[in-house]
Design a protein around this nucleic acid. Structure first.
Lengths: 226, 226
DNA sequence: ACAAAAGTGTTAAGAATACACCCATGT
DNA sequence: ACATGGGTGTATTCTTAACACTTTTGT
């Protein structure tokens, strides 16, 4: 072993990629940086992880501090990847552990200490600091995969939902239209959702049956979706 | 932001999970710890990541130092997961970035500085330090998944191989027998491998055709395997 | 009555599974 | 000639993909 004297660890940071659906589009939470480097540029919310703090705890703290979003309001959190970045920081080399979070009806806070948090459609992002555009693209591809082999959509939807809403969620994430009849047939055959007694009435058209997930936690599908 | 004074990063370590096939079994590289904690207990090769060093570089250095295995001899390396561990180390909290490596004909070195590196069948592991048994189980499950949706087997096989060898590799990783005719039909239909002109003669039976991968790098399958 | 979204079935093609015998070689 | 592993085909079931009209409601 080499480090018999003083051991100096690399800077450790955490970044969050928080997705939700808004107006039928998949959106991601960004902040406007209020310090150099990349002052004034949009970026993923991130910050330092301190000794004695797990990366997950650091993620929760940083997310709350910078965006006002509480991780208790997320339905699903998952570690994404750990990036080695050379010029992430004026200190030089840093290691960034990134987490993906999914939720619904998330409200970025507003206040002087927050960094203008806002959700942007993933198909219409502003210029981003660092390699954050790549990280978002990677998270998006992971999310697509996750929707095909798990029931992770539940984290993007309300407790009860119509089949059209469910299909729209898949279409928003996957970025392409799906056949209505095939979608319903297949999804119902998976046995993950069940009809409730309620209907959803809205507008001048036939009411829709409301469904719910049988189990509100992450399940792996045996037949992968699409 | 909280850390305006001195910032102290958590201890950052890297661990390697190196797999290869030996005598038809999937094996993983372990060392016998020569220090506390867990002195004398088998463990995954791991060590500190220092400032100025990427986690990947640290993994390469640590692996070579502790086992004599050179990462240049690995056919495939992939970051696995980053574990927050509380009691990993006498220093207290640590963050461990783990990498999975695949290779063939890997020879652990021997020498006074090395920590008795040896390959053990994943189905017959000794008692392990820390949560390394869990980490290996996780890596194994990721490897199984990887074999079903990519051509990652190439990293476990020689340049040319028979279909029986290929099937045996799948069976060793997945831990269950596969049907010979269906396996061949499906694998050949994927178009990832092609027959060479050579045959492999061995023993008192019909020689086997040797195949090779068309492209010797990682490909994602469109139809997932099995 | 009409506009708007909900709901519903069939057919055809492709993929997965189950299954048993002959072939080429060395001894 | 026999033992050993290499090599091959078919029938059945299940899954996927393509495709259009009727129903219920509010205005």
């Amino acid at each position: 072993m080499k480090y018999e004297g003083i051991y100096v660890a690399p800077t450790l940071v955490v970044d969050s990629i928080i997705f939700q659906l808004q107006a039928g589009a998949l959106t991601v939470l960004l902040i406007k940086r209020n310090q150099e480097p990349f002052l004034g540029t949009w970026a993923l919310p991130g910050g330092y992880c301190a000794a004695g703090e797990t990366t997950h705890q650091a993620m929760q703290r940083v997310l709350l501090d910078k965006t006002g979003v509480n991780t208790d309001d997320l339905e699903l959190t998952e570690q994404l990847y750990t990036f080695d970045t050379v010029a992430r920081d004026p200190r030089g080399h840093a290691v960034s552990v990134s987490y993906m979070g999914l939720g619904k009806d998330l409200e970025p806070g507003s206040g002087p200490d927050l960094q203008s948090p806002a959700f942007f459609p993933v198909d219409d992002l502003p210029d981003l600091a660092y390699d954050h555009a790549d990280i978002i693209a990677y998270a998006h591809s992971r999310l697509k995969a996750k929707l095909t082999y798990t029931n992770a959509v539940f984290a993007l939807l309300p407790k009860t939902f119509t089949l059209s809403t469910l299909q729209a969620a898949y279409e928003a994430v996957l970025g392409r239209p799906l056949d209505k009849r095939n979608f319903r047939k297949k999804y119902l055959s998976l046995g993950l959702i069940e009809a409730t007694a309620e209907m959803f009435k809205e507008g001048a058209h036939r009411p829709a049956r409301l469904y719910k997930f049988c189990q509100p936690d992450l399940q792996t599908l045996e037949r992968s979706f699409d």
